[in-house]
């Protein structure tokens, strides 16, 4: 039986049933109105056991969920845009992404992130063939395809074909460098600043830098006027 999305709790007591102490309804009707799967129950069970044993505290979980929601490719785009307008910042970004992010008030987390710079004649693209390593403490969750078999299997062996599937056709004059994230080091791509953006401010530049640009399966493009 599904939870009715129109169901309105405002100002109503639920006298007919009990909610767990301190909790409202523990799920969001719009996103979790599907069946309650065994794995969802397993997740809730492990959470409850870790809380009951005092291994985790509820406020830690809340804060971590907020942190997860606060990360996004827009943060990476800000770093790229700053690097495009400020060569000294770019040098610092290439030396240490986490420290450069901190300069802009961005917490990129404890795992080191390395920026790999695209130049004329050299394009970079990132993968994790062994699992799903991704600079998610800066950019948020990786897209599903990044974690799936086709991308992980093929991008190290036929990167040009994979990039072409993403709409990025590279000629033989451009070397393709694939970075396989196997150690405690994550990668973000620093793309080339596109032509036609002279004089743009950082905000306008950052809007060109998508998540796919930061993975290296796309290049920033200027929308035609």
């Amino acid at each position: 039986m599904s939870h009715d999305p129109d169901h309105d709790h405002q100002g109503l007591d639920h006298e007919d049933h009990d909610h767990p102490p301190g909790q409202r309804h523990p799920f969001q009707p719009d996103l979790e109105d599907g069946p309650y799967t065994w794995h969802m129950a397993l997740t809730d069970a492990i959470e409850q056991l870790l809380l009951a044993k005092g291994i985790l505290r509820p406020e830690q979980i809340r804060r971590t969920l907020e942190d997860i929601d606060s990360k996004s490719p827009a943060l990476g785009a800000r770093l790229v845009a700053r690097a495009w307008v400020d060569p000294a910042f770019k040098a610092r970004l290439l030396a240490d992404v986490n420290a450069a992010a901190a300069e802009l008030g961005i917490d990129a987390g404890p795992i080191p992130i390395r920026a790999v710079e695209c130049r004329p004649g050299e394009h970079h693209v990132v993968v994790c063939t062994l699992c799903s390593c991704y600079p998610r403490l800066l950019l948020g969750a990786a897209p599903d395809w990044y974690k799936a078999r086709a991308y992980r299997s093929r991008v190290v062996r036929e990167p040009r074909a994979v990039l072409a599937e993403f709409g990025l056709e590279l000629g033989p004059e451009v070397a393709v460098v694939v970075h396989d994230s196997t150690a405690e080091l994550r990668f973000m791509v620093l793309p080339e600043r596109p032509a036609g953006t002279e004089g743009w401010d950082e905000e306008r530049l950052a809007a060109l830098v998508t998540r796919d640009c930061l993975i290296g399966v796309a290049r920033p493009t200027v929308p035609s006027a």
Binding site: V156, R157, V176, V177, V178, H179
Partner: peptide
């Protein structure tokens, strides 16, 4: 890595 690789010689993979 792949003897049948068809791209340019400067294509490469970086692995930790």
């Amino acid at each position: 890595l792949w003897p049948d690789y068809r791209g340019p010689a400067q294509d490469r993979v970086v692995v930790g």
